[in-house]
Write a protein that binds this DNA or RNA. Structure first.
Length: 478
RNA sequence: CGGGGCGUAGUUCAUCGGUAGAACGCCCGCUUUGGGAGCGGGAAGCAGCAGGUUCAAUUCCUGUCGCCCCGACCA
């Protein structure tokens, strides 16, 4: 029996488990420069699947794709004060090019508001040019002090949507719409439950009036900011002079939004759904949904088994299911482990037993439930099972999230929860930055958001006791 | 930038003053195939880099670079 080092148990050390899964499932590896990441085949296939689904939704929102340059003049970033203040600590700055010192340093984009809106100011002239909704798929660089695979890398891939509108109401609708799109995507495609809400003043995007977010809970009780959607107001419009003439012929500044989702989403999927055997992929984004494993032992009709496997393959492929037949000569046990590691949602086994009663043994990746299907119905049954599994994964993550969302009415309770189970805490906060800072430095928990569906109630700030009108969500973040 | 750890085969590590070894992986052959199969053969290394000590350095010392983990920053 060959010895294969198994991955660290998720419950033992989630960080080691996470790194093991990424390495063993060949999702990614570290690049030679700190904080950079090589997306290997499976890791990039996941990103492609995300892109494919999300790109359609983005276009349904009314956006069109474009591409803006990687290099931005430093002066562009400096135009919006809070923007440059927010980003300057993590900028990669190019000072030399072609062997010569550049007259003006250029930065590698940390985000593209500035370079896009410089162009917008030329593109937009009339109210007839509005709304302008542009999306770009790109990489950005933010020099991270403490990188972490997928969740926090110096270079990451994302989509960034940017829009300009005639009114603040239109801009807010856009920001709301983008967030709704992300929530739908996370829940129905990535099977990840979370809280949608508004960021606090200190947590919002540098340069935004308001920032919307979707916050996802990982198994260790820490929280992942899964996306952002900003109402930028006229902050950038002012400095980049993005103006239009309205019906009355008056010059007006546009109202803008920007919104993004990154490769961090892959990290969230790994963390939330994975188990001791490796990845568990929601069927909707699994690059491979079903693997067929013929099991050929001596004394059985190999050709008959392969024929059966081929029939199932044909039917599934005809049903647009992403299916693969693995008739390589590794042992069945090796294959079982391998595909479980890679998170393939369903596996079909065909051996002597199945050949005898003309059935297919089907095993679910997430809970190991097994089924026996006949050839006549296998297409339908597998379709059903994939959709059931998709829903079950979301339900499971929702249950987990709700179980780990607690209310704390005193700072003592708050501290207790944060040092024990962690997770989300709903607590009253006066919305004063100093109380927020105190909580953060003492408990590592920051405000994650004020939930969109949060209700207004009377309460007292858990730190200072001042009047508060609503409960905010707090958590430690990744 | 603070605290800790580590740089040796593709990977994970062992060796320890006398210039290298295991496991897994990989390649070839035969035998196998219901939870990481067996046997035989094989390829694979300027021991991160630069100095120093020494007859001799992967090993000891100094420096340097890089990476990983833990804190402050962040999608």
């Amino acid at each position: 029996m060959g010895q294969v080092k198994s991955i660290t148990k998720k419950s033992e050390d989630i960080s080691a488990w996470y790194n093991d899964v990424i390495a063993r499932a060949k999702l990614a590896e570290h690049g030679p420069v700190r904080g950079t990441m090589i997306f290997r085949l499976l890791g990039f296939a996941l990103w492609e699947a995300i892109q494919k689904t999300l790109d359609t939704k983005i276009k349904d929102l009314g956006a069109q794709n474009a591409y803006f340059p990687l290099f931005i003049p430093l002066s562009f970033l400096q135009k919006e004060q809070s923007h440059v203040k927010g980003f300057s600590p993590e900028l990669a700055v190019v000072t030399h090019g072609g062997g010569e010192k550049l007259t003006e340093p250029v930065v590698v984009r940390p985000t593209s508001e500035t370079i896009m809106y410089d162009a917008f100011s030329r593109w937009i002239e009339s109210f007839r040019d509005l709304p302008l909704v542009i999306n770009q798929w790109s990489n950005v660089v933010r020099w991270e002090k403490r990188p972490y695979m997928f969740l926090r890398t110096t270079e990451f891939l994302w989509q960034e949507g940017h829009s300009a509108h005639a009114t603040n109401e239109d801009a807010q609708k856009m920001a709301d719409g983008a967030l709704k799109m992300y929530v739908d995507f996370y829940q129905n495609t990535l099977a990840l439950y979370g809280y949608a809400g508004k960021k606090s003043e200190t947590e919002k995007f540098p340069g935004a009036d308001t920032t919307l977010t979707y916050e996802i809970l990982a198994p260790d009780g820490k929280v992942i900011q899964a996306c952002t959607s900003h109402n930028l107001g006229q902050n950038f419009a002012k400095v980049f002079k993005v103006e239009f003439q309205n019906e009355q012929g008056e010059k007006k500044l546009v109202w803008q939004t920007s919104w993004g989702l990154t490769t961090r989403s892959i990290g969230a999927v790994i963390l939330a759904h994975g188990d001791d055997n490796g990845l568990v992929l929601p069927p909707q984004i699994a690059p491979l949904q079903v693997v067929i494993i013929p099991i050929i032992s001596k004394g059985v009709d190999k050709d008959a088994i392969l024929k059966m496997a081929g029939q199932a393959f044909g039917i599934l492929e005809g049903n647009n299911i992403k299916v693969k037949m693995d008739d390589n000569d590794q042992s069945p046990g090796w294959k079982f482990n391998q595909y479980e590691l890679e998170g393939v949602p369903l596996r079909i086994e065909i051996g002597s037993t199945e050949l005898k009663d003309k059935s297919f043994r089907v095993v679910r990746r997430d809970n190991k439930d097994s089924f026996s299907f006949k050839l006549e119905t296998i297409g339908f049954e597998i379709q059903q099972l994939l959709s059931t599994m998709q829903k079950d994964l979301l339900a499971k993550h929702k249950d987990f999230t709700l179980e780990n969302t607690r209310q704390a009415d005193t700072y003592e309770d708050f501290k207790k929860i944060m040092s024990a189970t962690k997770g989300f805490i709903e607590a009253f906060w006066c919305e004063d930055a100093s109380c927020e800072e105190k909580i953060k430095s003492e408990t590592k928990a920051s405000t994650r958001c004020f939930p969109l569906d949060g209700i207004k109630v009377e309460g007292k700030c858990i730190v200072c006791g001042k009047k508060s009108t609503r409960r905010w969500l707090f958590a430690q973040s990744y």
